[in-house]
Write a protein that binds this DNA or RNA. Structure first.
Lengths: 295, 295
DNA sequence: TAAAAATACTCCATAGGTATTTTAT
DNA sequence: ATAAAATACCTATGGAGTATTTTTA
């Protein structure tokens, strides 16, 4: 049975064309080296060297075999190297999902930082709602998600990485748009645009309880799934919306953002991943997030 | 130190995902297999399998490493296969030279036959004179030559493979062209076209002594190196020439070939090769020649 | 509790060492 | 005469076997 040892010895003898010197460089004695080469030759079924007692030269077949052996060792190095890279999460692919609003705050920084530390990981991005992300994570279609917490499933790891206050999005022509900040109670009679509770129950409940704190239940006239759509509907004067402050980064003509007079609960964004079977790449990604958050 | 044994074991465990069954298929016991895999993992510096006592699955790095290992084994097979082919002379290249007249008799058959038996040997052909071939052989620029014997050098192997009578090439308008065969003595007064003695001393001497047998020394008015040129000069009515009969295959308008009345010596063609350091490809080539000659 | 991997040890095959011979220059 | 590979024989590392324990589903 051919072993790499045989090939290593062969390469050295082929390089030195001298069994004694080759043995020396291999830190071994000459007779076992001769023996191993002989063994390799019988295993291969052809001569590698043309030996006279005074000189050793490669046969034609030996020369060709030498070239092939180089490829083998190169392949082996490649195998070890890429294996190690994957194990360190430096090579591979990562499927990431995010709620639409995450694209306006944490995501850009994190992705930039991750790409620069491990450029050999290819990314796949999906804009999904919180509940869709939970589903996709379970199915293994994504590896990490940026969601609106809380996440119930105990098999998932989940850390809040970002918190931001809520603001009111108003049509530009709206009377309240003249004020620099808006009191909750003044929104009592307004038409509200909101997303379906299922999509992000945590944030939904925060908004509802905030309204209750202002002494009213919001009159939801329209539901929309994406934050962009909600803002568009505000621009179309369909109503007002309470949204995370980072949505200000989505400047849309016809819409203005105003802070609330009251202290609002913070809308959080969290990373989620499968606690079991999370790859080194995911670990790397989480490390990068931690680093980014510290700054 | 990583050995192919480790990789073979790893491949089997990766295939079975079960140490017991893998060990069975490798005709060995389970504990040493576990041990070898562990050894491989420490050598590599990363985990290949994620093991619970109930199940074995490949890590991401393990999967990648598995793919790389497949390539390694494929490369190894390739190395052995091509080495064997080269050793059998079935793969490689062969530089062949030939005197111009050989192109009209033995060469075509031999090349056809060789190409069909060992199609993976690439051929390089050179039309050279006998003395040039000897030179090129010494310099290693060609591996075999088709020459006009004799060859003095004892380090060369040399076998006559073909013999042919000599004929007279005459201008079509020549008086002797009317005869179906020509007596030597009638050529006594003719102008002769001949090649320089150095190019093929054997054939040259044969022609000269043939003329002497006819009672005259040829009056050489023109020398030419290539047989085609000699025939062209005959066509141009510069003189007559004595040439090997296979030159009849070179039909040139204005030239006719006539046999001699006398029994002529035979012009021979021989193969030459370096006796020392002759590759398997050369051996193969010589075998093919032998076969072709037997038919 | 049962199946499967890991651990602990034992053994022997063989890689590798030493001494010597052979052979080509 | 000498350098270098081959041969003969010996040693000991470590690969593989057996018995047992550990672990988790």
């Amino acid at each position: 049975m051919i072993e790499l040892r045989h090939l290593r010895y062969f390469m050295m003898v082929a390089e030195e064309l001298h069994f004694g010197r080759a043995a020396e460089r291999l830190h071994m004695a000459q007779p076992p080296l001769s023996h191993q080469i002989r063994q390799l030759e019988t295993e291969l079924g052809f001569q590698l060297f043309y030996r006279t007692k005074r000189s050793v030269i490669l046969t034609d077949a030996g020369q060709v075999f030498w070239g092939e052996c180089r490829k083998i060792f190169w392949q082996l190095e490649q195998a070890v190297r890429t294996g190690q890279q994957v194990s360190r999460g430096e090579l591979g692919q990562l499927a990431i999902a995010f709620v639409s609003s995450a694209a306006y705050n944490v995501l850009p920084q994190i992705l930039r930082s991750f790409r620069s530390t491990v450029p050999q990981v290819s990314l796949e991005l999906h804009e999904l709602t919180t509940d869709q992300q939970v589903q996709w994570l379970r199915e293994g279609r994504i590896d990490v998600g940026f969601v609106r917490p809380p996440i119930e499933d105990e098999t998932f790891g989940c850390t809040t990485i970002f918190q931001e206050p809520l603001v009111v999005a108003l049509p530009k022509a709206h009377a309240l748009a003249l004020q620099s900040q808006v009191a909750l109670s003044t929104l009592a009679g307004e038409s509200f645009i909101l997303f379906p509770r299922l999509l992000a129950p945590g944030l939904y409940d925060q908004i509802i309880s905030l309204c209750q704190q202002g002494g009213f239940s919001p009159n939801v006239v329209q539901e929309a799934i994406q934050m962009q759509t909600i803002i568009s509907l505000v621009a179309a004067e369909m109503g007002v919306a309470i949204v995370p402050i980072s949505l200000q980064n989505l400047q849309r003509t016809g819409v203005v953002y105003r802070p609330l007079v009251e202290v609002t609960p913070k809308a959080a964004i969290a990373v989620v991943w499968r606690k079991l079977d999370s790859s080194a790449t995911v670990q790397r990604f989480l490390e990068v997030i931690e680093q980014v958050m510290q700054r």
